[in-house]
Design a binder for these strands. Structure first.
Lengths: 189, 189
DNA sequence: CCGACAATTGATCGCCGATCAATTAAATAT
DNA sequence: ATATTTAATTGATCGGCGATCAATTGTCGG
């Protein structure tokens, strides 16, 4: 409940204008109670961002589901479109994931790591599916790299860098890079 | 002077703990004077981040210079290593570039855009140099895409995502993706 | 020395994250 | 039903922040 409303507030105002006090006000609790539950501002943000990860993963699984019995290429497209689609439809919440940095002395609770890691797991599985048996061992590493590739394009899309450079189809660009790398991987092992 | 000290403060404490008051204190001015000069907190951040861009561009030009009369492949490597090298050596300042988001009603002063754009210009020039004459028209678009690719890898490196996934050589990963895309571009036009 | 203009100051405002003694509610024992 | 213990909740309080602006200080030609 706290997290859901906190997530809404993040979606409404973005990371820079987010405040724990406002979340408390929105659910009718006092600021003190909220701090008793989460202990720290950072922990609240972590919880909200993990929720964003979960919603994002669901969104991408959905996109994969809708690409039904289609070929591997269509599933790769669904992955990229799912990545971009969620980020664009949830600008503030998505950006908050990367706006928030843990202080060096704080660590992410393992259960949050596990939930967030599922998104990568989905990608690894799809990459594995389009690689020949001989090089499936490389799937995790390649998948991480492709996620980074798509992430870079998505980031530049949302923060206006691409628009500034006159780029009109960042997603197509990202998909092209992913396809190239998958082709190269298939050829080289 | 204000900007230089502001940049140092950003490098010292990072975006989240940065404060205009502290910058004023560091140079021995009052908070009021600082606001008379920059008008807004955002304008101060913009100035600091543009300075980071300039230092970054110089750093990469240097890396290219040191790769002297070497082949195109070595210059591409120098580009990627310059991108990562600066970011790693200036974590806080580099991250601040992407942590700061302009409010929707504010626009970046054109002279800042111009200075920041030089980094992309450098990359476009290098990409053009390794493409056959037939497809030089595609150089700007491809260059933007490759910058996004490297950026994604660099971001995941600095924010710990790669470390979390067990990836030990993010830069090598980025370079591999860039080489693949350049090869594909050379073949397809 | 004076007045006009520019530069600089810092007290003040509202809001923030964080704390914690005091209060209220709930559960348990008698 | 009442007393006692435990848990949950509160909000005033603190220091620090971005932002403002009347008051002060500095500058310089006449």
């Amino acid at each position: 409940m706290l997290i859901i409303e906190g997530h809404k507030h993040m979606a409404d105002v973005g990371f820079a204008r987010f405040s724990a006090r406002e979340v408390a006000k929105r659910i009718g609790y006092s600021i003190g109670t909220l701090y008793n539950v989460f202990g720290t501002y950072d922990q609240l943000i972590i919880a909200i961002n993990t929720r964003t990860f979960v919603l994002w993963t669901d969104y991408i699984r959905d996109a994969l589901g809708k690409s039904g019995g289609k070929s591997g290429d269509d599933r790769i497209r669904a992955l990229v479109e799912g990545y971009f689609g969620f980020a664009r439809a949830n600008r503030n919440a998505w950006m908050a994931i990367y706006d928030h940095h843990l202080p060096p002395d704080v660590t992410m609770p393992p259960e949050h790591d596990a939930l967030r890691g599922q998104l990568t797991d989905v990608v690894v599985e799809e990459v594995r599916a389009v690689l020949p048996p001989a090089c499936q061992a490389e799937a995790p590493r390649l998948a991480r790299s492709l996620v980074a590739t798509v992430h870079g394009h998505c980031m530049f899309d949302l923060n206006g860098s691409f628009a500034l450079m006159g780029e009109k189809e960042p997603m197509a660009l990202a998909l092209a890079r992913v396809r190239e790398s998958l082709l190269a991987a298939r050829a080289s092992c």
